[in-house]
Design a protein around this nucleic acid. Structure first.
Lengths: 333, 333
DNA sequence: TTGAAAGCGCTAACAT
DNA sequence: ATGTTAGCGCTTTCAA
């Protein structure tokens, strides 16, 4: 009935060798006489034998799959990282189990547990609020964990990022230097360390550098959505802001369009600089000036770091910081 | 050294029952006396026992993971489907192995093989060129395959789509009815059935319905990228087109911006209607009018269909067609 | 309601 | 260079 599955045993019998020998040729072990190898290969081909990765995983305790936790695949920032992760994973013969978390702590812990149950060899985590619960899970995981584009302020978890503080500082300084008197700080949830500990810090440093007092009323905490940005226009104007640093591109696109649709001239009356340099920045008009980040590379380097951790290779630096840049487009003068 | 892994055997010993009993309580088998269940649960908790999904997979021949082949996660159309897939998968306790294919036939076949080697219980395939090689793989797979947002013109593979012919026909008819004399057909690769067999057909039907002769020079075959669209502007004008149907949103955004940046007034001098109704349509200015598709649902329904196939449930219809719509925004009059 | 025991398909010592 | 033989950790008859 069922397409009869061919096992290593069948191959061994047909080729008149032992299972061990078949296993050796399948795994490229050099200790096989060319003649036998040829014979075995011939039988494998004839029977159309395909090794069962699950059985292999049980016996060898390696599944060659890694778990990837992502807030939302639909967000271009994260999917860009994911693409880098998958490409490098494939290069090193790993597969990816992808799970959306919505940055929901409960979901994250739960997913983490099922990934561990599935015996993944490693985990890449994206998400900006590393709660203690989460950190505890990371620690008791025997599979190494790497953060991609996500910070753990304790620095305990290996990670790949850019220097968010410096990047925001520079971006905001530029705004001020060009004459902006009241720079708004528009960010996602402040309970995420990346916003409260890093970006806000860079913002404050830029203000301090210019001798400007920090003004709480210029801080806009919202969620990462286009709509949220769009509806911010009245508040932004009410606060007398004349420019904004924004922590996410979709959010920034919303801010931009909200302003423009209300007749505000960007960049002449209001400048905007965003954070992630996703392709969205090129789609809108005016195009969004942005901090640039090597998105694909953040994912790729994170995966590469993970392979080293999984294979117990030397790792010089557990917290990799990749270079950022500043790209002037049309939303700044 | 190693965090000692707790096995079902340890639990059985500690609870003074057999492995079979432990297995029963773990799997919610009702044939266990409440008292024993309680005792076992208590030991599981105390030892912090976590069932090994790989061992379970080997013994039960079910891995509760499905493979998902996607052209590129970074494309919002596909990532939107992927999100629907993952949510429903999670709801039914499956995990997703996600693999990017770049719609490259060789890669697709290879990925398909590693997914089968990993004993996935089912596969969701996105990608619009189902070659014979691919179809052959589908057939010899014991795991069921479902296409999401992707057509197999032979209709042999279960799938979830909208009626592309009717949708394009209607979109183009609207353009013509509003006065467009020369509607361009801008699509991705023509070796993809969705373009050559479906969309083009709808386009031709609309022309025929209006008594307009098909003009080869109005067909623009390109790749699915923003840049490709942007650089199409001279050709579009040279062909004397006064409107365009475009097969992909990123591509359409490129066409729109290419035109606008060249000083063409959209929609007054040139109308554009796109195909996928991703969030990109709302980001650009003017906003893109589009065929609407229930993107998330296409993924969700595909995954739901797959669960039925995997569990041998009744399936009324193997080729599900979801409703489409037409959304007028600002790129059409 | 519970247990014994035979696998699932493979890897990895260990022998030879 | 090749074979023998334990497992890997679990599910699943089959008996009791």
């Amino acid at each position: 009935m069922d397409k009869q599955t061919v096992t290593i045993y069948d191959v061994a019998r047909e080729a008149a060798v032992s299972m061990a020998t078949v296993s050796r040729v399948v795994n490229g072990n050099p200790n096989v006489k060319p003649a036998t190898r040829k014979k075995v290969l011939e039988v494998i081909d004839r029977l159309d034998y395909r090794p069962n990765a699950v059985a292999r995983g049980l016996a060898s305790k390696k599944t060659t799959t890694v778990g990837v936790i992502i807030p939302d695949v639909t967000n271009v920032y994260f999917s860009s990282l994911a693409r880098g992760i998958d490409d490098i994973a494939m290069m090193y013969k790993y597969n990816i189990i992808l799970a959306n978390s919505d940055e929901n702590g409960r979901k994250e812990v739960q997913v983490l547990n099922t990934l561990m149950a599935k015996q993944v060899d490693g985990i890449i985590f994206m998400g900006n609020e590393i709660t203690d619960d989460l950190r505890k899970e990371f620690e008791r995981s025997k599979a190494p964990v790497v953060l991609a584009g996500s910070v753990d302020d304790t620095g305990k978890t290996p990670s790949v990022n850019i220097d968010y503080v410096a990047a925001v500082k520079e971006a905001v300084k530029n705004l001020i230097d060009r004459g902006s008197k009241r720079v708004a700080f528009v960010s996602g949830p402040m309970d995420q360390a990346i916003n409260s500990q890093y970006r806000l810090k860079g913002y404050k440093q830029a203000l301090a550098g210019a001798g400007i007092d920090f003004d709480e009323s210029l801080v806009f905490e919202t969620d990462y959505s286009y709509q949220a940005g769009q509806s911010l226009e009245p508040a932004l104007l009410a606060a007398n802001a004349d420019s904004a640093f924004v922590g996410d591109d979709e959010l920034a696109a919303g801010v931009l369009n909200g302003l423009t649709d209300a007749g505000i001239d960007v960049p002449n009356k209001f400048e905007i600089v965003t954070s992630n340099d996703t392709k969205l920045t090129e789609l809108v008009r005016p195009k969004l000036s942005s901090i640039t980040q090597p998105l694909y590379d953040i994912g790729a380097v994170a995966m590469r770091l993970l392979t080293k951790l999984m294979e117990n290779d030397e790792v010089e630096e557990n917290n990799v910081v990749l270079p950022y840049g500043l790209m002037k487009r049309q939303s700044t003068k």
